[in-house]
Computed example of a mutant assay.
Amino acid sequence: MKRISILFVCMGNICRSPLAEGILRHLVAEAGLTGQFTVDSAGTGGWHEGEPPDRRSIATAQRHGIDISAQRARRIRPGDFRGFDLVLAMDRDNVAALAEIAPPEANIRLFGDAALRTGEDIPDPYYGGPDGFELVYTRLLTGCSSLLETLGVERASCSGNTSSVR
């Protein structure tokens, strides 16, 4: 299998994209394919650069056996468009922001199109409560699992508690 590089992007890189990065890294590790993937996340804005993910994202991930506490927010860089096979934005606003700065050959897709095949935006849970983070986790888990299956990684080979929302 060819090494695949995926970059998840949201606005500040503290809620949705760090969760997506953590989920996909976890699923890839469970499948024994860590060496076959490069997974990262970034934000279209740099307000939180260097900060850990939002405490609610960390707590949500932790409830599902995933540790994202060591991640640090960063702003997308021009080299990311060349360095990643696939750039998955969490919503249409981020797709538009990326399209303004990306070279024409960049592979930018909406997560809801590429991973969920529903065309939906992943809602930003920042201004809500814990239920919003659980909803985002569920959508990201479903999409990341589907994405791996599309790339030829069988979900059935994965174990652990990420397949359910508690």
Rank of each mutant, 00 (worst) to 15 (best):
L148M: 01
V28T: 07
G43N: 04
L19G: 07
G129Q: 14
E49Y: 11
E21R: 14
R63F: 11
I6A: 01
E49Q: 07
A102R: 03
L98T: 09
V39N: 05
D113C: 02
A97H: 02
M11D: 02
P103F: 03
F8W: 09
I6E: 02
M1Y: 15
G160H: 01
D93A: 10
I66D: 13
C158V: 12
Q71S: 12
L86C: 10
A99C: 09
R74H: 11
C15I: 07
S69E: 01
S163P: 00
L151M: 11
G160E: 05
R77C: 12
G43T: 11
A97M: 03
L116A: 10
S5P: 13
D121P: 02
S57N: 11
E105V: 07
R92E: 04
G132Y: 02
P125H: 07
V87S: 03
G46E: 10
W47F: 15
P18E: 08
D40W: 06
I6S: 00
D131E: 15
I4L: 14
A99P: 01
T44E: 10
T118Q: 09
P104W: 11
H26L: 02
K2P: 10
R117H: 15
P78C: 12
F8M: 11
Q62G: 06
G143Y: 08
P125W: 02
S41Q: 01
I14S: 13
R166W: 13
G152Y: 08
C10Y: 09
D113V: 09
F37T: 04
D67N: 14
G160A: 00
V165P: 03
S145V: 03
D121G: 04
I23Y: 11
R82P: 00
T142L: 09
L27E: 13
I66F: 08
L7M: 04
A20Y: 08
D85I: 06
P104K: 12
G35L: 07
G132N: 06
C158K: 03
I6P: 03
G65T: 08
V136Q: 08
A59S: 12
R25Y: 09
P103A: 00
R117V: 03
I66P: 07
L86A: 09
H64M: 00
R16E: 07
